[in-house]
Design a binder for these strands. Sequence first.
RNA 1: GCCUCGGUAGCUCAGCUGGUUAGAGCGUCGCCUUGGUAAGGCGAAGGUCGCGGGUUCAAAUCCCGCCCGAGGCUCCA
Length: 620
Amino acid sequence: MKALLLDAQEFSYTPVDKEIDAADEAEKGKSKEYRDVLVAFVAIEKGDSESFFGDVVSDIKEHLAAIGDRKVLLYPYAHLSEDLAPSGEAKKLYGALFEALLNAGLNVEKAPFGWTKSFEIRIRGHPLAETLKTYKGKRRAAYTPKEKFYRFFVIDENGDEHEVTPSNINEVKPLQENDALRTFVINELIGKKEHHEEPAHIKYMKKLELVDYCPESDVGHLKWYPNGVVIRDLILDYAESIALSWGAIKMQNPLIYRTDVEAISMLQGEFHERDYKIEGENMVLRFASDPGAFPFVQKVSLSYRQMPFKVYEEAQCFRKEQSGEVVGLMRVRSFLMTDHHAFCASEEQARQEFRRLTTLFKELMDSIISPNHWVLGFEIVDEYYERYKGMFKELLREIKKPAFFKLMNRMTHYYAFKNEFQAIFPDGSNLQISTVQWDVKNGERFDIAFTDENGERKHVPFIIHASSFGSIERALASLLESAAWDEKSGKVPLLPFWLSPEQVRVIPVSERALKYAESVADQLESAGYRVGIDDRDMTLSKKVAEAKSHWVPVLAVVGEKEAEHGTANVVNRIGAVIGKEPSTEMRIDELKSLLSSLQGDKPKRRMYVSKYISRRPKFY
RNA sequence: GCCUCGGUAGCUCAGCUGGUUAGAGCGUCGCCUUGGUAAGGCGAAGGUCGCGGGUUCAAAUCCCGCCCGAGGCUCCA
């Protein structure tokens, strides 16, 4: 919204003609005259809402305090903006703004909306006499957890509830026993403790040549080096196999959406400020997976036999976060989500999918994303807590973990409840990764329906939304922070073996051993592993040092001895204490079976850079 | 978006109370070294000191604006 505030000695206007059918009441040709009035010319713009009316009221009050008390005349003036709201919406907000000023005790009148009017004005000549104010749609009113949520408790793995308040955190037993959970609860209820260093993953993402900032793009858009891309692709391979085994179809929807489509503007809700708009078009970049998924499924002919209907998508999302919020891989403006939806025909189906996804994601956190350093939190509308607490307790018994619950008394979003798997970082911060959400609204809102046993068309009563790896960016942040945890406890920091951009580095003792090194590398490479050969003219210890500093998990040193015996001197660094990384002489087939046991059933991909270290450029 | 701190070679940083030709380590390139598990030796190249403006005889250094980053705040459907 734009507001041009003019301190007028004299002002008069005359309604000439109605411009729109829904115009305000006014008498054609009847002039109104004012003396000593603050005329507020306002233009309601696209995306405006009542959210900032409080600011408008206080600004006008402040202004009146500065220039002297006056009557205020609200005057609709579309010419202040090139990005106007539709007239219906604008008229509604114009009226609401008038009410807001009236309720604030101001002496205010309004000129009719929707009329062509002539006016005359004589403005005072002081510095404050002419002021232009711009207001942008704020996000949701700021809730602190205390306002949005009114009750907090932990449910332990036995199903017992423990009430938590900001003052009793240290006395709650499950919180005494679980550092990660206590950290999370403190962050939620009291606020994050100050840390002055940058998160470990920012240092690592550059050092390992995975990802970096890209000053040529907008803030929060990252460039990915080959080593980062291979990790991303491997995570996506694995996320896809999880989703397909779960029973989803895989789909792909566009990145750009029309805001004049009702379904899209409904999903945009109050969050216009975080949208990436396309200049001059009624278009936004995709801000979540739903704008693609809901219209997609809405048009699918579904029978009860196909329910629950599950979809999976790698959804690139764009959110224009405040510039000061963007940090490392934790908060970015463009990210790739691994997004699941289950459209359920019955409550029973929804319960089953909620449980299944939650246990699945628990395994993911435990085995890959953040082993030993994660917690589970729930946000619930209270009526749903009463109804589903049995399910929650059973679930916690099953995964053998306590969880932190926050209760609210009204539904602020589309979900009745959701859980979130939060990784805890060594610096004491937490980051949401996986989530499962229970949506009771959108089946009806978006007319997503199936045909039941009786041939009747029914809205999908429950939609389960879920994301396995959250965003790839956050998953990578968590993987790197997991390594930081290991490093902190004196262990070698590494990525999981299957995600290491280079899984094995073959290091010839001297150039004479290069031929043999190549044959070893070939054997491992043909078994599907990512293998590097350090063919550079450097001392052995320097080559070893460099491989270690680049987090290569397995080193195979070969010289004349090994060539003779058909072996390699293997350093398996996984789980080793820093400085004590034992080496073992083994045959190549033994090495292969070691690698196979480390790899497990995880996806394989070839290396995205040359296997010869001498052929690889430094990326910076 | 706000507050604080920062931006100097490809990278990490020193220099910054204005004053010769802007330094170091790493990396790169060349030469020597042909080595047995965390960094062998010598040499060379490499810089619009983030960008723009201002003050001054003189600006990496002081002032203003902007851009980028970090921490904090606000925020995080």
